[in-house]
Amino acid sequence: MSSEPLVVAEGVRKVYRTGPKEVVALREVSFEVHPGELVAVRGRSGSGKTTLLNQVGGLDRPDAGRVVVDGREVTALSEDDLLGLRRDVVGFVFQSFGLIPVLSAAENVGVPMRLARTPVAEREERVRTLLALVGLERHANQRPYELSGGQRQRVAIARALANRPRLLIADEPTGQLDSQTGRQIMELLRALVRSEGVTALVATHDPSLITLADRVLEIADGVVHEAVRA
């Protein structure tokens, strides 16, 4: 494992304001994630997990502190550079799958490569490889409504890996799945971290899934600390 961290968060603070009311979502959060790790972020709903992932992935900006991903200071990037980061360096998997309903599984996986203007032959080969990797090569032409929840999440994971990101961010990827399917998805993520050489930061509140992580960051009331494993 590399000694240089892929993700560095230093003193990250995020406050949401609704009129005179303030909600502190993150309180001076600091942590590191090293290449090749699968790090789980554990906490109850509303604890700040999604807010934390959004800061790392450049989907939101903190009020204070800094985040560095793959040597780039995310918190200082322009909007264009953030788009580049999300296209080339970070892949996202969401609880709601986020697939395009009118596109087939293969077409959904290919979307990031179309945006990156990957040559057609290379794109099609990468789509075939990824669908095989997540066990869906026989479902390439099916649309999301023809797939189960677990299959849709597998398509979403394949899509997130399309442009060979260094960091995979997954926000409650098993939240809409039954416990058995959820564990299969987490085991798939674990396997992909090893086979694809990707680093993963996964938010979950499911204690049965935590055992698959290399490390666990516990978040409560916007405060993060590393959990002690039993």
Rank of each mutant, 00 (worst) to 15 (best):
S3E: 15
E4N: 14
V12K: 12
R17L: 11
G19I: 10
G19W: 11
K21P: 02
E22V: 08
V23N: 11
A25E: 08
A25I: 10
A25M: 10
L26Y: 10
R27C: 06
R27T: 09
P35H: 14
G36Y: 10
G36I: 12
L38Q: 15
L38T: 13
A40K: 10
G43L: 07
G43R: 13
R44E: 15
S45D: 12
S45K: 11
G46E: 14
Q55V: 03
V56R: 03
V56K: 00
P62H: 03
V69R: 00
V69I: 02
S78F: 03
E79S: 01
E79Q: 03
E79R: 00
E79W: 00
E79P: 00
D80L: 05
D80M: 01
D81C: 00
R86P: 01
G91C: 00
F94M: 00
F97N: 00
I100S: 01
P101W: 03
V102Q: 14
L103H: 07
A106N: 07
V109L: 10
P112D: 06
R114K: 09
R117M: 02
R117A: 04
R117Y: 05
T118I: 03
V120L: 08
A121Y: 02
A121H: 04
A121K: 07
E122C: 03
E122P: 01
R123I: 02
T129H: 12
E137G: 10
R138M: 05
H139M: 12
N141C: 05
N141G: 15
N141K: 13
Q142A: 14
P144H: 14
P144M: 07
G149T: 11
G150P: 10
Q151W: 13
Q153C: 02
R154C: 12
A156E: 08
L161V: 06
R164F: 12
R164M: 10
P165S: 08
L167P: 05
I169M: 06
A170E: 04
P173M: 08
L177V: 13
T181S: 14
Q184A: 15
I185H: 04
M186P: 05
R190V: 08
L192K: 05
L192R: 13
V193R: 04
E196K: 07
G197Y: 08
A200K: 06
A200E: 04
L201C: 06
L201N: 05
D206I: 08
P207I: 09
L209K: 05
A213D: 04
D214M: 07
L217G: 02
E218I: 05
A220S: 15
A220Y: 13
V224I: 11
V224H: 03
E226A: 11
A230W: 09
A230C: 07
